[in-house]
């Protein structure tokens, strides 16, 4: 009995660094932040008043959050759809045998090592000085096209990771499945529909869930590329929260917005997860 207690204690010691760091950086800020959502704190003053549910009531009648909401959804779903379609098609091309395969893979992966600041800087220049011949003015300069511009930067910066995952997923499909289907006379599309897609479900699950939840919370790329402009037409929810805190000194309200934002993101993540879990097949 004494020995068991000792063993348990020994294992617990290994957990202590993690507990301290995690509580300090995530648990405590998260829990201590909840009550701020019920205050009128301006982010600077040492004191604040409790205002009950005012912030939440205001949020649901605030016309100012509609535009960022729309932008976040367009950007999030735009990136997710485009990224996954291109990554999957690229992966299936890269899975074939040809000379220069390793070279092309590397080309697609390298932008993953570039920061959002650098990526936006280079693309801002390209949009303004090179592609403006085709698009009239910089994609980032017009309200109607700015989100398309940011989506393109995001694709350049992040496509590599999903491409990697799909390549690994495709490599994991046993060759005899395809061969058997071919012998049975299944065409390319049929094979894709009835073999590739079901067998790739674990990859879809990771790629789609991760791309959607991370792009819905996009912050750095938007801030570096446009700062939310022109005239707020690319302001996302994450940026809105940041602006409420640091620009408009409404920290209490910002915290309320961020909690609602979090609940929505968690719900989307869980729904997607359940959707894909139910569709995974046993290999």
């Amino acid at each position: 009995m004494k020995k068991r207690v000792k063993t348990n204690l020994e294992y617990f010691v290994f957990l202590i660094p993690s507990l301290i760091l995690f509580v300090f950086c995530v648990i405590y800020p998260f829990l201590s932040g909840i009550h701020l959502a019920f205050t009128d704190w301006n982010g600077i003053a040492p004191t604040y008043n409790y205002v009950g549910l005012d912030n939440f009531i205001q949020l649901f009648s605030d016309k100012q959050v509609l535009e960022p909401l729309k932008n976040t959804l367009i950007y999030g779903f735009g990136v997710t759809i485009a990224n996954n379609i291109i990554a999957l098609t690229l992966a299936s091309v890269l899975s074939k045998k040809f000379r220069g395969q390793a070279f092309f893979k590397t080309i697609f992966f390298i932008p993953l090592s570039i920061s959002v600041v650098l990526a936006s800087f280079v693309w801002r220049y390209i949009f303004a000085n090179l592609l403006n011949g085709i698009t009239g003015q910089s994609l980032l300069g017009a309200k109607s096209t700015v989100l398309v511009g940011i989506i393109i930067i995001s694709l350049w910066n992040n496509l590599g990771s999903n491409t990697m995952i799909y390549i690994a997923g495709l490599a994991g499909i046993p060759k005899d499945y395809e061969e058997a289907a071919m012998i049975d006379g299944a065409g390319l599309l049929q094979r894709f529909r009835y073999i590739t897609i079901p067998m790739l479900m674990p990859s879809f699950s990771i790629c789609i869930t991760l791309t959607l939840t991370s792009s819905l919370r996009e912050f750095g790329l938007v801030l570096a590329a446009t700062g939310g402009g022109p005239a707020g037409s690319s302001e996302t929810f994450a940026l809105l929260i940041y602006n409420y805190m640091f620009k408009y000194s409404r920290a209490g309200y910002a915290q309320a917005v961020s909690l609602v934002f979090m609940v929505v993101l968690v719900a989307i993540g869980l729904l997607l997860n359940r959707y894909f879990r139910n569709r995974e097949v046993e290999a």
Binding site: L36, R217, A238, I241, L259
Partner: peptide, 9 residues
């Protein structure tokens, strides 16, 4: 949890 939810605290 998005970083924004713990950013202010």
């Amino acid at each position: 949890i998005p970083f924004q939810a713990v950013m202010i605290p």
